[in-house]
């Protein structure tokens, strides 16, 4: 069985390389009040990912919403070793930009195709933050 590989090109937000399993949500994510940084779990009532952890995942999401504590919560997640391995998102805001900067993991935005349509939870994703190149291997 041949593996299906898709390439996406985007813009560097934060440099560096990482690979891992994708966790995809079509809901924007709240930082403060929306995640538990000690476990990396989404806690927001009615969120698509409620109860799931982004620890060590390639987090694919539309962007940030809610409190200005976004960066401090994801920053805390990095210290607690629960942060995502990389972040791919579609809508740029100051919350998500600053959050990505302090998480230190590679982050990419402004893609040539919609990562939320192309990438599914469980796909294997390689991210090169410096070149903005993202390689997606579809799950079996």
């Amino acid at each position: 069985m041949s593996e299906k590989i898709i390439l996406l090109r985007g813009r560097k937000v934060v440099g560096g390389r990482a690979e891992g399993e994708a966790l995809v949500t079509h809901d924007t994510i709240s930082g403060w009040g929306g995640i538990d940084p000690m476990t990396g779990t989404v806690i927001e009532t009615r969120h698509e990912l409620r109860g799931q952890s982004f620890k060590d995942k390639i987090l694919v999401f539309p962007g940030a919403k809610g409190s200005s504590g976004w960066s401090a919560m994801f920053h805390t997640a990095r210290l607690a070793k629960t942060a995502p391995k990389a972040m791919l998102f579609t809508t740029m805001t100051t919350k998500v930009a600053l959050g990505a900067v302090v998480v230190h993991a590679p982050a990419v935005t402004d893609f040539d195709q919609d990562p939320l349509a192309v990438i599914e939870t469980g796909d294997w994703v390689k991210v090169d933050g410096d070149t903005g190149l993202v390689e997606v291997t579809k799950r079996g």
Binding site: S68, G69, A72, T94, K95, L98
Partner: peptide, 23 residues
């Protein structure tokens, strides 16, 4: 503080993004 930011921009007409602790 998202509630202060939206007030600052919308009601006062001053200019701020939603900044974070580090910025």
């Amino acid at each position: 503080e998202s509630s202060a930011v939206v007030f600052c921009n919308s009601v006062i007409g001053a200019r701020t993004n939603t900044e974070g602790r580090e910025s």
